[in-house]
Simulated scan of single mutants.
Amino acid sequence: MTAAAMDVRITGDWASIRPAWPGLSDLGQGIDGFIFQTRDWIDGWFATLGEAGDTEGLFAVLSQGGTDRVFLPFVVRRAHGLRILEGFGDGTADYHAPLVAHGAAFGPAEADALWAALNRHPHAPDVIHLVKALAEIDGRPNPLLAWGATPYPMSGHIARLEGGWEAWFGRHFGRETQKTLARKRRKLGEIGPVETRFARDDAEALAWLRALIAGKAAQMAGADVANGLAGARTAAFYERLTRDDPAARHVKVYALTVGGTPVALQWGVAAGRRFTNLLTSYAAGDWTRFSPGLIMFRDLLEDRFANGDETFDFGIGDEGYKARFSDDPALILAGILRARTLRGHGYVAAQHARHRLREAGFVQRLRRTLRGLRVTDRAGATDAKAEAA
């Protein structure tokens, strides 16, 4: 006997669907996924960045037997005379992936049902253009890649926190690095008392976050790198999450202080036994010779072990230190690009021309994932036939 097919409903009315949408507290409690698609993240976006007016939310829920099982948030952006479906919160979201109830199916059949529902929706987009989509979800190929996969140049990295702190620390921080950090911490202690901790209350958390944003701006000013925290709306987004998270259950602002002055700052989210590290800054000038960012990072990892986290998510980007500390393979990200209307085909053709310039190595990895998708699809069909027999 085969499982009942998923029903799909799509709405742009966030208020109507919000009560059933999983929040940060649901992660690891029957829901698998990332913080970026939770109710808390969506609420924050609507209250700040969503006020810009050039985008609107579109939310898909897949249910089975009357129970909601898969949740996918999107936005529709109006540009070039087109309605373009994108991943929700791009610019604040490191990955685009569904929230999935434990044991729920999200495979080719569900992707087909979602596509059919999008086509039936009265405000259906002209183009689907998702970037930073996970190429694999819980080790299985993301079925949305079958809509039309394109390269994405960066990956994500996750460390598995297991085996106890001392063993993990010894494995990932070489003996010389450990000695160097201890020496630099002693030198900092000669300037003033050294402390690493989370903010104690909302006022301190907000003050540290504002200092972090200012520090990040100073770091980016002298580098040829875009500052992702630039703009009042983006700052307001992170302030809202920091201020409105009850009793700081999930949002954590962390600092290394010397004589009470923060010299390295970090903002992250703890949910579902995963700590997601998102924003970091450190004092410039003479402070850099003490490596305050690395000392803070070392202490933060020890804290997360003590708090019982199972994974530490470094977020998007292929900086060398992320690969060094990650025990698992990189999270491969991909784009998903497909035209739904005749007007959308010109946009897709232009995007494909750009993607052809991307590195060939990523394309090879993406092809391997797509081959896995076809294998999974065939295996699923075989399983269904066996069950029916």
Rank of each mutant, 00 (worst) to 15 (best):
Thr177Gly: 14
Ala264Trp: 04
Arg9Phe: 10
Ala97Ile: 00
Ala111Gln: 05
Ala339Trp: 02
Ala159Cys: 11
Ala218Gln: 12
Phe34Pro: 00
Ala133Asn: 03
Ser326Pro: 05
Arg18Trp: 01
Gln37Thr: 04
Leu134Asp: 00
Phe71Pro: 03
Arg171Trp: 02
Glu239Pro: 12
Glu319Cys: 04
Gly346Tyr: 07
Ala101Pro: 05
Arg9His: 10
Arg240His: 15
Arg273Met: 07
Phe237Gly: 11
Ile31Pro: 05
Asn307Cys: 12
Ile336Ser: 00
Ala360Trp: 02
His345Arg: 15
Val225Ser: 11
Asp303Glu: 14
Gly346Lys: 09
Ala182His: 11
Gly372Asn: 01
Gly272Tyr: 08
Arg69Thr: 05
Ala235Leu: 13
Tyr152Pro: 05
Arg356Asp: 05
Leu72Arg: 01
Arg186Gln: 15
Ala283Trp: 03
Arg243Leu: 13
Asp68Tyr: 06
Gly12Phe: 05
Ala205Pro: 12
Gly268Glu: 06
Glu302Val: 06
Val100Ile: 14
Arg69Asn: 00
Ala388Lys: 11
Arg77Lys: 15
Ala388Leu: 09
Gly259Ala: 09
Arg368Ile: 01
Leu85Gln: 03
Gly66Phe: 03
Gly174Thr: 12
Asp202Phe: 09
Lys179Tyr: 08
Trp147Thr: 00
Gly335Pro: 04
Ala135Gln: 02
Ala79Phe: 06
Ala20Val: 10
Ala264Tyr: 05
Leu134Gln: 05
His96Arg: 03
Pro19Gly: 09
Arg171Gln: 13
Ala211Phe: 06
Glu204Met: 13
Asn227Cys: 15
Ala4Leu: 10
Leu294Cys: 06
Leu256Tyr: 02
Tyr254Gly: 06
Tyr282Leu: 08
Ala207Cys: 11
Phe46Lys: 11
Ala353Met: 07
Trp115Thr: 03
His123Arg: 15
Phe169Leu: 12
Ile128His: 04
Asn307Asp: 11
Tyr238Leu: 12
Glu302Arg: 15
Asp244Ser: 11
Gln219Ser: 14
Asp202Asn: 15
Ala323Asn: 07
Ala97Asp: 00
Ile213Trp: 07
Thr38Asn: 08
Asp377Arg: 12
Gly285Ser: 13
Ile17Leu: 11
Gly335Ala: 04
Phe312Thr: 05
Leu145Ala: 04
Gly107Pro: 00
Asp245Cys: 12
His352Arg: 14
Gly81Glu: 08
Leu62Val: 04
Asp54Ala: 09
Lys179Ser: 14
Leu130Thr: 02
Gly222Lys: 09
Gly315Phe: 07
Lys184Met: 07
Arg343Lys: 15
Val258Thr: 07
Thr196Trp: 11
Leu130Tyr: 00
Val131Glu: 06
Ala384Asn: 06
Phe34Gly: 03
Phe71Ser: 04
Leu62Ala: 14
Pro73Asp: 05
Glu51Asp: 04
Leu333Ile: 01
Trp147Gln: 00
Gln364Asn: 01
Ala207Met: 08
Val225Thr: 13
Ser16Lys: 14
Arg298Lys: 13
Arg69Gly: 00
His80Thr: 08
Ala353Asp: 03
Val363Leu: 02
Ser16Asn: 07
Thr242Ile: 11
Gly259Pro: 08
